[in-house]
Amino acid sequence: MSLQVVTANRLDDGLAVFMTADEGWSTDIRQAICAGDAEQAEALLARANTQKQQITVVGPYLIDVANEDGVLVPIKYREILRTLGPSVRPDLGYQAG
């Protein structure tokens, strides 16, 4: 099994966010809490699917990540795009700022 983190969309602005160790949410995947096995991953997902979390985010799910030189990076292209923002408008999203 690869490493996994929980991602979702923040309700107030729709941005992709990642669950942090304190059960908060960050737009920076480098701050995400990472699961190393299936049991840890399911526990993280359960923590993300509570009623308390549903006030902040929608649609949490697990994604595969790789640890490249100590930095978590998504493996699938879809998730790479979610961490960068819109690909058709480089003046928008995370890459703009």
Rank of each mutant, 00 (worst) to 15 (best):
M1A: 11
V5R: 02
L45F: 09
S2H: 05
D22I: 01
V65F: 14
T50S: 11
L84C: 07
E79L: 00
Y61L: 13
T7D: 01
A35F: 01
Q54A: 14
G24R: 02
A8G: 00
A16S: 09
A8P: 00
I75E: 09
A21I: 03
I80E: 08
R78P: 05
Y61Q: 10
V58G: 15
G24W: 06
G70D: 04
K52C: 06
K52A: 11
V6P: 01
K76E: 10
G70H: 12
T20R: 08
G59Q: 14
E23T: 11
A96S: 13
D28H: 06
E79Y: 04
A32W: 06
V71R: 13
A46T: 07
S87E: 10
Q53H: 09
P60I: 05
M1H: 14
L45C: 05
S26G: 11
D91V: 06
R10G: 01
R10F: 00
Q4M: 10
N9G: 06
L84M: 06
T7G: 04
I55A: 13
V58R: 14
R78N: 12
V73L: 14
L45E: 04
I80M: 08
Q53K: 05
N67M: 14
E42L: 09
A38W: 08
A32G: 04
D91S: 15
V17T: 00
G59C: 07
I63F: 02
G24S: 11
R30K: 10
Q54W: 11
D13V: 07
D28K: 04
A96H: 13
A41Q: 03
T20G: 01
C34P: 08
K76G: 04
S26C: 03
I63Y: 02
S87N: 08
D91C: 05
V58A: 09
Q4R: 12
D64K: 07
G14S: 08
L15P: 02
T27P: 00
I75W: 01
L92H: 07
R30V: 03
R78G: 04
